[in-house]
């Protein structure tokens, strides 16, 4: 007799546990307000990335097309996998001295691991992360970017 009661108890408890689970799922079924899906391409305009989001490395330029990069190469040394390559040139400053300056700051987005060491170690805060995250291109060569804009110059007062 006890075994029969045990058998029935097992069935009732089992079904009860199943019903509790079904209650959770059906509650969600009838509450469309809890849907968490974001409709991505449609919400592009309202989509704001967080300010620290590591999208890609950029070199901010001011309105006079000036940047802060001195071409010291510390970011290149700190980069773990050779994402950054710096081609420097020698320029003659106004007072006639020869000085090393940046020619091309090559940044290979395809290799970047977003470890933030370049941004962190840059002595003149020339690099920053942008919030852009749509990086897909059809040609891989487009992922190799030159960060300093053509014709840009070193900002005054940055050594």
């Amino acid at each position: 007799m006890r075994s029969i009661i045990e058998y029935l108890r097992e069935i009732v408890l089992g079904i009860w546990s199943l019903l509790k689970g079904m209650k959770v799922t059906s509650t969600y079924f009838f509450s469309p307000g809890k849907i968490v899906t974001q409709k991505y391409p449609e919400n592009r305009k309202s989509l704001v990335m967080l300010e620290r989001f590591k999208g890609e490395v950029v070199m901010p330029h001011n309105e006079k097309n000036e940047h802060k990069c001195t071409g010291c190469g510390i970011c290149e040394i700190n980069c773990p996998n050779g994402t950054i390559e710096i081609i420097s040139k020698v320029i003659i400053t106004e007072d006639g001295k020869k000085k090393k300056a940046i020619d091309k700051h090559i940044y290979r987005l395809g290799m970047c691991t977003f470890c933030a060491l370049c941004v962190k170690t840059c002595p003149s805060n020339a690099l920053a992360f942008s919030q852009k995250f749509e990086h897909a291109v059809f040609n891989r060569a487009l992922l190799n970017k030159i960060l300093n804009k053509p014709g840009s110059q070193l900002m005054k007062g940055v050594e």
Binding site: L50, R52, F53, K54, T113, F114, C115, A116, K120, F129
Partner: peptide, 21 residues
């Protein structure tokens, strides 16, 4: 994570001697 570290999964938030930010 994203708000503080800038990355969601691969946070890279530590550095020897402390934190990145």
């Amino acid at each position: 994570f994203e708000e503080t570290c800038g990355g969601r999964m691969l946070v890279s938030y530590n550095c020897p001697g402390g934190l990145m930010y």
